[in-house]
Design a protein around this nucleic acid. Sequence first.
DNA 1: AGCACGCCGACT
DNA 2: GTCGGCGTGCTC
Length: 800
Amino acid sequence: MQNRIAQVVFPLPTGKSFSYIVPEGLTERVQRGSRVWAPLGSRLLTGFVVDLKQETEISNLKQILDVLDPYPAFDSQMLRLTRWVAEYYLCSLGEVLNSALPSGVRFRGSEYLILRNPEPHHPLPDAIKGKKEEAVLESLFQKGTRSLLTLERELRRDGLYAAIYDLEQMGYVAVKSREGRLVRLTEGDPGVLEQQIDELKRKAPRQAHLLRILRENGGQMAALQLRKNWGVGADVVDRLERRGLVELCFEEPQDSAVNEKTSQGIAEVNLSPTQARAFRQIKRALDGGHYQTILLQSSPGADRTPLYLQAISAVLRREKGVLMLVPEVFLTARAFKHLKATLGLQAAVLHSRLSDVERYRLWRQVREGRKRVVIGPRSAVFAPVVNLGLIVVEEEQDSSYKCESNPRYHARDVAIVRAKMADAVVLLGSSAPSLESYHNASTGKFSLCRLSREVNNPLPKVTIVDIRGLRSTNAREILSPLVCERLKLCLQKGKQAVLFQNRRGYATYIQCSQCGFVPQCQNCQVSLTYHQEEHQMVCHYCGFRQEAPSICPQCLGHEWHFGGVGTELVEKTLRSLFPKAKVLRLDFDTTKGKQSYRRLLQFSQGDRADILLGTRMIAKAMDFPRVGLVAIVLADSCLNLPDFRAGEKTFHLLTQLASQLTEGEIVVQTYSSGDWTIRCFKNFDFDKFARRELADRRQLNYPPWSRLVSIVFQGKISEDVISIAEKYSRLLQEAAFETVQILGPSEAPLGKIKGAFRCQILLKGKSSKALRELVQQCTQKLKGKRGVRMTIDVDPVEMM
DNA sequence: AGCACGCCGACT
DNA sequence: GTCGGCGTGCTC
Ligand SMILES: [Zn+2]
Ligand SMILES: [Zn+2]
């Protein structure tokens, strides 16, 4: 008896799965993990098959219409992993599966179907059984090739892809990418060709250009080459083909980059004695061949990369796959370069910035085991690496690993669970690890591997400058005399200086000197930041902006006090102090948007500036050898965040900045020089900091001693939000047990953002499982209200 | 999430 | 009378 019933989940908030009949023609191809096309209500949706059964009690079943990939997108291990993510982070399996796939997988549009045997068979071979197969073949007989998009339009979509994959499997057709096409001139006569080019020149210069390229390169070229070397896109090729001026043929793709080195040819890395000592422990874990998480805690400035490379090389020699996670997309380039230069490897770099076609191509190569090393940001933790042997999580403490939209997973934690399932080793690298990982290492859940600095490579000098006195004497003063002095020296020596200030703009707020009025955002409960360059008031939470006022709208006063130092003001100060120095400012904290990404890459490469100034991102972005001074303009802006992790985050930040120094000094300006975090950082004593911080957190029952779940309600009408939050809170109180603490509901920090009021309930408890069950139970009972959205965050990182 | 269904007030 | 707001519940 065949499995005729498929259980399908969809990317909807419902955790439910739906049963469908698998039609005759699709039984072979519809498997667990397949992506399918199916009707739900009045809609047609893409879903995922999570199970196959022989029968069901449910009546009035609908049919699955089509299967989207030639083989299941998820294997059983990935299904297990995504199910864990859904259960742990309290969201639907469908949503997790959807975000685990490369985004925007509508890749099929750029592919072509070709007839393998160009002779039309009449009658059709016996093997062709389905109507759809027949239709596809008939369509191809008319013209040797068809784009998949054309076929979708021409034939009905139901069962189309299943038919295509069947025909492909039987060897009648082949799916080729648009860029695998060979473009050939149809006109052999040079005179006629010249005439054609002339005619096209005015109306379609790009097409004329393509003809010229072909003429000068032997009359033919692969579409991929045309794009890569000449910048001529596939659309131009299509148009010329329609004119009949070029013809296309399909050759087997000669993708040389795909072929990785054989495992024997993988190089080894030269390790220093210090590194070799640390590596021995990693090697033992790799040799063991079982799950283990190693926290690689390096002293600031010690290079972890050689250890990663050596571990990767060892894993590849065992014919296993590697996943390397980095905190930001732009950091993948550096990792790729290292792998290429040292091991001679072409790793697959998977991230959201690739085109759909490219991303899907790489994803398939990884899925099919043709690429065994994947580099990427947090989403890459779901890359379908075959036979996984090692996951590297670089800068494991970085909060970018936590996803701030559904599913709100933490890539480091998912990596650990994945490694357990695959019996792989996890390497967590950091010079100031998260206290969660540090704690896990001290309880024996992880093993700790320390990497110290090379003996000839001393720790940088740390100077703490208390600026309490300074500010009171001259409010306009931003840089202490000591920092100015060090800057001068640094520049004289021809070294670069890095300045960090966590606030963008010129002033974080402006205030009327006469009546005390502070311009606020109309959508958020925050003051507007003054940007001098654009002469605008900007909200950093919703993007609202308006012309900076010259006259106070309240009292018509015209004198403003600028409060809170932003990077623009620091830049202005630097320019007046060092008019000859080249100052480069990098001030955005997201890498979203093309422009910021480009500037970021320029920044991390363009090391010609004398002074580099910026916000959080500079700590991650820079990779310069010439840095002689790092100055933190105001450590307090990080230290005083309303977050129980403020101290930890400050330590991370300072350490990351200090790691950029090969030799030199790091100067920290602060109002609270007596603070424990600052004092420990002065001696680079993370262990001392962590011990005290852990003790404090134990006292207050904060992670890692407890688990948190944050529930945020938001909506335009504050009364509705509050009433729902209170209703939920009552449900919690009814169902809760002693070990759970319910904090709130209280107005979330920054109560109103983007016009939405926010109310937060924080659950604290010993067991994450118990908390999650409680939340799940209450959420089912809660009757929501239109206009009030509820967000559940398990293990929240950002407390805002 | 969407979408239909149904219930109620208000306006041609 | 019916148009359109929104709460409710379902989708195999
Ligand atoms: Zn005023
Ligand atoms: Zn705002």
